[in-house]
Amino acid sequence: MQISAETGVMYAWGDDKKENPIECMLVMSEDNPGVWEPLGFNSIEGFTYVRGHEYYLSVRRTILANPPADASDRTYSLIRILEDRVVTEPEVPVDEEITSEEDIEYHDLCPFEKYAISKEFVVDKDGNIYYGDGSSLPSYDNARIWLEDVLDKEDPNWVKFQTVSYQATYSYVFSPFTDDIRLIRNDSHGPMFKSVIPEDEFTRIIQTMQSGEEVRYALILANVYKKGLQKLEFTIKKQ
């Protein structure tokens, strides 16, 4: 069995309307070669998945004669890990025709207010990062800009907006320090802080900005086809 470094989305048994997407592994097995299939994180006994790792496993598959009504008819247990490889995300190329915000094509029904992020981040002279309310983030290398799904479940398009076409796979980054547009990959929770604000820009904020000064960044979230979903803006303020 091969396990992708990227995760997917699955739905619980009985969730026929697909109202509650669940993050899961993507696996490819000898049963269905060439096809990535969803599998729950805890579905392989003895194996713990780490995001960003690609695995090749030897597993024991058991097909159940009388499976539970709300579960799969097969179970898996780990025999051994054949390969465990950390996958480094390559820089995502931006289409040469995209030189401004107006060049980004939006997907059907978009832009739409599906996601939200914190509107303000604060950085002190030592490079510590805080939310606007004063709560701290992890270090620069480990901080994340979290994407919160705020779409009302009563919205008539709620189910449609949970499909892959409306998931924020990428972000187009608009920086106050350059006219270049960068395209970065998000994961299921949002982009890493250091992907949005590269080290040279973060150093510039720490070393050259005055106390109280702030700069504004913008993200245009995009789906797997690199079509826009919505625009989000936030500020970084020097403490």
Rank of each mutant, 00 (worst) to 15 (best):
Q2T: 09
Y11I: 06
Y11E: 09
W13G: 09
W13S: 15
D15C: 08
K17S: 15
N20F: 14
P21F: 09
I22A: 06
C24G: 11
M28P: 06
N32W: 10
V35F: 14
V35S: 06
E37V: 14
L39G: 08
L39I: 12
L39W: 06
G40I: 12
F41P: 08
N42E: 15
I44A: 10
V50E: 15
R51M: 09
Y55T: 06
V59W: 00
R60D: 08
N66Y: 01
A69W: 04
D73M: 05
R74E: 02
L78K: 02
L78V: 05
I81C: 02
I81P: 01
V86C: 00
V86D: 02
V86H: 02
V87E: 00
V87T: 01
P90Q: 01
E91D: 02
V92D: 02
P93M: 07
P93Y: 04
V94Y: 01
D95Q: 04
E97W: 07
D108I: 01
D108Y: 05
P111D: 04
P111S: 12
D124M: 03
Y131I: 07
D133T: 06
S135P: 05
R144F: 07
R144K: 15
I145N: 00
L147M: 13
V150M: 11
V150D: 04
E154S: 15
N157M: 13
W158S: 11
F161N: 10
Q162H: 12
Y166E: 09
Y166N: 13
A168T: 10
Y170A: 13
I181Q: 05
D187G: 12
S195L: 07
E201M: 09
I205A: 03
I206E: 03
M209W: 11
M209T: 03
Q210W: 07
E213I: 10
V215H: 01
R216L: 11
A218S: 15
A218M: 09
L221S: 00
L221V: 01
V224C: 05
K226N: 02
L229T: 10
L232A: 02
I236K: 00
K238F: 06
K238C: 13
Q239K: 13
